[in-house]
Simulated scan of single mutants.
Amino acid sequence: MEDIQQFLPEDQQVTVLRRRLKAWFRKHGRSLPWRETRDPYQIWVSEIMLQQTTVKAVVPYFERFLARFPQVEALAAASEEEVLQAWEGLGYYSRGRNLRQAAVEICERFHGEFPKGLDDLQSLPGIGRYTAGAIRSFAFDLPAPIVEANTLRLYCRLLGYDGDPRDRTGERLLWSFAERLQPQRNAGELNQALMELGSQVCTPASPLCDQCPVSSHCRAFADSSQNSIPWKRERPKVTQLVEASVAIRSGETYLVRQRQSDKRWAGMWDFPRFGIADISSRTRMTRQGLKKLSATVRDELVRTLQVEVENLELVTEIRHSVTRYRIRLLCLRCDFTHEMETADSTRSSGGEIAWKTLRELEELPMPRTGRQFENILSGKQS
């Protein structure tokens, strides 16, 4: 294993780094809602929301979520469906489910008080090493090393580390550096400064080195290697998929299904949705193509839901991405005619189904694309 000591700075340099980072942050740090509080509950909610999501997108969700669940007790008392509905649009819905489950455990195991210890924090669902450190330092001002996307990039450049930051050696080095940086006092301010500098100055492309308060201590800057550090893994190949989402109408109601725990968007409600193998992401929806699509959709509805439909029409198409998949979603509307006799046994194996009005759907958690389709059906968006 590579000796990491060669990369780590001396104590005197660490002291200078801390001083310059804090001074820069006091002058340039952004004012964000979760930076105006020491409430561990609010800090925890913000950190979970910020995973896989930009700051700009999180702010309104954060404020609405706290208005609905102002304390950990309120979140613990809520149903999973209520939490998912409040989380709707943020994506990566396991974060919302884990948030609720962790709230239950905080109330049951810790009597509603947030633990301060890293081990106790990491024992809660959805809280890993970084999030535990963020809560401990931001809420309680206690030393706790943090490594996340922005600080990982900053640390690699400061240390001039061009290896894989996510393999065993890289992780050991970066966490060791993060721990060495920790002061005995004002740990929260230092960690906020590190994250802010990584986010706003030490950016992935074209870092603003002329604005960096610690560029004189940056080995990558000295070597002009800041654009090649950190080492980047090859991106996974993008897979193109075509799916159909079908709004089956019966009077004023539509058939929806709650997605099962082993499926994407588990616990959310959605119109029946399934893959379409014989249409590509580029196939034009000509008259012949629509006829072929209609036949495929009818067959799939009989097979999976055992319902017969008529008057199929293509309402819209939605292009979206889920991890490494690029999905072309064909949104169709049709009229329910009748169900086949074996419907109950078939449906019971595929998740709960219900007939809901469009107004009732507003109260159910739906994936973003399902909500887009519902809004189109309701006339809220074209």
Rank of each mutant, 00 (worst) to 15 (best):
Y130R: 10
Q182H: 04
A103Y: 03
G163R: 01
P183Y: 11
S137M: 05
L121P: 01
L124G: 02
R172L: 15
Q182T: 08
L197H: 04
D167N: 15
L173F: 09
E113K: 14
T151D: 04
N150S: 09
I127M: 05
F110T: 03
E189D: 12
L90Y: 06
E171M: 13
L154S: 02
R97E: 06
N150Q: 11
A139V: 05
C107K: 11
G198F: 00
Y161G: 06
Y130S: 15
L174G: 00
D167Q: 07
S199L: 14
H111I: 10
L154H: 03
D167I: 07
S123Y: 02
I106Y: 08
F140M: 05
K116L: 09
S94G: 11
R185T: 15
H111E: 15
L158G: 03
T131L: 08
S123M: 02
R185W: 13
V201K: 00
I135E: 04
L194R: 08
L197W: 06
P165Y: 05
Q200G: 07
K116Y: 00
W175L: 13
P165T: 10
G163Q: 04
I135V: 14
G128Q: 10
R109F: 10
Y92N: 00
G126S: 05
A102V: 04
I146W: 02
P183M: 14
Y92L: 12
D119Q: 12
R180I: 12
P115H: 07
A102H: 07
R129P: 03
L118H: 03
G198H: 02
I127C: 03
A193L: 11
R166W: 13
R109S: 11
C156E: 08
L190N: 09
D164Y: 01
Y161E: 08
G112T: 02
Y130C: 15
R136A: 11
C156Y: 10
V201T: 09
L194G: 05
T151G: 09
L118D: 07
L158K: 04
P125Q: 07
N186L: 14
R166T: 14
E179G: 11
V147A: 03
A193P: 01
R168V: 15
C202E: 07
E88P: 07
R136E: 03
R185V: 15
L90T: 06
V104L: 13
A132H: 05
R172V: 14
A102F: 06
L190A: 11
Q200F: 12
Y92A: 10
G126R: 02
N150G: 06
L181C: 03
Y155I: 07
M195C: 07
F138M: 08
C107Q: 12
E148M: 06
G160H: 06
G91S: 01
L142N: 07
H111L: 14
Q200L: 15
I146A: 02
Q192C: 06
L174P: 01
Q122Y: 01
